[in-house]
Amino acid sequence: MNDLTAKRASLWDLANPTRFLAIANPVIPWLAAITIVALLVALWMCFSAPEDYQQGATVLIMFIHVPAAWLAMMCYSIMSASALGTLVWRHPLADVSLRAAAPIGAAFTFLALVTGSLWGKPMWGTWWVWDARLTSVLVLFIIYMGLIALSKAIEEPAIAARSLAIVTLVGFVNIPIIKFSVDWWNTLHQPASVSRLGRPAMDTAFLYPLLMMALAYTLLFVTLHLMNMRNEILRRRVRSMRMMAARENEAA
């Protein structure tokens, strides 16, 4: 690395992640507090909602299932946007954001699968159907896990950042194709009956708690994402400090 690039890199280090920390550190406690309040309100709204005439009390599972599934998708969109940021603008925070989002996305996808399964058992009579929507989410979960595995596998941070970004984007391009093909496959094999039961049009009595829970989940995601980004930045600091130490040892 020549002098000029070294200088530029250090300026980037100084400008962005440091400024990010300066903004994030005071914001995180407030966000966390708002998230907790929102979650409590949402929970109260959910449990005071009436029973659905068709689904009975299981509508309670929908209140936490739908937001989880929604966030599973939103998280991947954010990761794809971050991937663009890494590849196009080489923004150091973009990679931090991508890495920080992956485990959260995987966790929400997992929750969507588990709660969906727990809803499916009493409603459909089976834990799992190879329904188009379920299958797509399962594939999304595998993609998340693959990305996490890749991020752990590559040591060199710059290469890891770009590799992750490329795979994320290729996955993003592929998701519509996967969705489409699973739909096709499903209409060929579907024994019917199951999908139609899926989601009847929602009454406002259920819609408001659901939206509130979605809001709370989104806040939760934002808070966790910020906290994880902060950790990732600190992890990089530790790394660069260790390298400095090693270099000084060598020089001495």
């Binding site: 029973e51 009975g56 009390a57 309670l60 588990v114 727990l118 809803w119 058992k121």
Partner: peptide
């Protein structure tokens, strides 16, 4: 009701 075995775990 009858669905508590699914709601509580979820």
């Amino acid at each position: 009701g009858q669905y508590s075995a699914f709601i509580i775990p979820s």
